[in-house]
Design a protein around this nucleic acid. Structure first.
Ligand SMILES: [Mn+2]
Ligand SMILES: [Mn+2]
Ligand SMILES: [Mn+2]
Ligand SMILES: [Mn+2]
Lengths: 141, 141
DNA sequence: TAAAGAAATTAGCCAAGGCTAATTTTTATG
DNA sequence: CATAAAAATTAGCCTTGGCTAATTTCTTTA
């Protein structure tokens, strides 16, 4: 029996995604780093961390550190995956880096795993078939 | 000189999209119809209509009707376009209708026109090349 | 080891976008 | 044309997720 897990908001997903990325790259995620890298205030991060703890996505010790629960990590990994695939997809299509970032950061919260799988398959095809890729790229206004 | 027009929220875009669709299909958009078809209360619609009027997206006469301004119509048309292309794209990939609807309704607010053009081109290619489409579809888990 | 500085938290505020209940206005109908 | 029903609005509430300013706790350093 798998617990269903209610849909997380885009904001919650962005926090979990960034927390996991910080842990992957520096080994820990401090409030100040989360704030800096998401471009929001430390106070806002403290509030959200309290919420993420209450909802069981992180374990938080006041004035100390922060770790992800299994559930929080699962959500973070899923978001990071969607981010990665969507980025690969739009880059393949020749979209400018700044537009890729903006589009992906929004779309990553609205992609079912079916759609993700389909786009993944499409990326594989576009990568292995450069002629196709050229054709698609040349068909854009 | 083209007025830049600040980014509209997803909620604003959903309202304008639906208002335009109602006008296209029945000739007018009443508060009660907007509420019914978006699945929200009439009171919430009245509030938003007031906001859309204040921001110049619709012209509203109290207890009377509602029309879109040029700016409102332009936004509505753009959202409807993104909705249509994304729907075509995910359907081509074989995603179930209910997932298509959910994904599209969210993603349509986060797609630059570059990305839209690229996906449009991709749809043309997938439509005219059934062998490619089969290959992509069979590559999905 | 006492300050100073950095990090975290709290308090209090705001806007967006929902809701229900009550009221007002318009429309339809006997 | 009076009244009932439908539509629209208002009033008042709530949650989410931001903000700044003030305060508290931890860490570094002279
Ligand atoms: Mn995001
Ligand atoms: Mn992301
Ligand atoms: Mn939508
Ligand atoms: Mn739509």
């Amino acid at each position: 029996m798998i617990k269903s897990g209610k849909r997380s908001s885009s904001a919650v997903e962005d926090y979990l995604e960034r927390i996991q990325e910080l842990i992957d790259s520096k080994g820990y995620a401090r409030v100040v780093d989360i704030a800096l890298s998401l471009g929001i205030s430390q106070a806002s991060v403290t509030n959200m961390v309290k919420r993420l703890d209450a909802e069981g996505f992180v374990k938080h010790e006041r004035y100390r550190g922060l770790i992800l629960t299994d559930e929080g990590r699962a959500i973070a990994r899923a978001v990071i995956d969607r981010h990665r695939i969507l980025t690969e997809f739009l880059r393949l299509l020749g979209i400018s880096e700044s537009e890729v970032e903006r589009d992906v950061e929004g779309m990553e919260h609205h992609l079912s795993s079916s759609s993700l799988g389909a786009i993944e398959s499409l990326c594989r095809e576009l990568t292995s078939n450069r002629e196709l890729l050229q054709k698609v790229r040349s068909g854009m206004k």
